[in-house]
């Protein structure tokens, strides 16, 4: 067991974890932030995507101990009460989700895409979503949502 300190959604946590614990399991099992999901064991599906120090990463492909000292942002840290992050709002507006299981990872990746590609076109979004699998939507409305959400993120608040 190793003691680590990390900031999750603005709140500092000091926890003891087994060294082999994946970041996603720390978030889900210890911190009880269950928005990040585990959808595969080969780092392909992206349902576990969170931000570590401002960058989208797959939290199933990183040890919790590697996040010692890091700032983590999860899906739970985006909205302020009923006020949604523009990307969350865009997913709702454009019906970018059905069963919702891939959605937290999709939204976290979408925000990362929008930061790297302000006002992306549909082709860019499709290419950038390579590591996030969805079985329900056929991606059609996810792509629309990400394009619209990125546009809104670029507007002055």
């Amino acid at each position: 067991m190793t003691g680590i300190t990390l900031t999750v959604n603005g709140r500092e946590h000091v926890v003891e974890v087994e060294d082999r614990t994946l970041l996603v399991h720390l978030l889900r099992d210890e911190l009880r932030l269950t928005g990040a999901h585990v959808g595969c064991d080969t780092s392909q599906c992206g349902a576990c995507t969170v931000h570590v120090d401002g960058k989208a990463v797959k939290s199933c492909t990183m040890l919790a101990v590697q996040a010692d000292g890091a700032e983590i942002l999860t899906i739970e840290g985006l909205a302020n009460g009923r006020e949604l992050h523009p990307m969350q709002a865009a997913f709702r507006e454009h019906h970018g989700l059905q069963c919702g299981f891939c959605t937290p990872g999709m939204i976290m990746m979408a925000i990362d895409i929008a930061r790297r590609h302000p006002n992306p076109d549909a082709a860019t979004v499709r290419a950038e979503l390579e590591g996030n699998l969805c079985r329900c939507t056929g991606y059609h409305n996810i792509v629309k949502a990400v394009v619209a959400g990125a546009e809104r993120m670029g507007e002055p608040a």
């Binding site: 995507t49 990463v57 492909t61 990183m62 990362d112 895409i113 950038e128 390579e130 590591g131 996030n132």
Partner: peptide, 9 residues
Amino acid sequence: IGDPAIRHR
């Protein structure tokens, strides 16, 4: 290489 999340790590 991989996808954006993979490329970040």
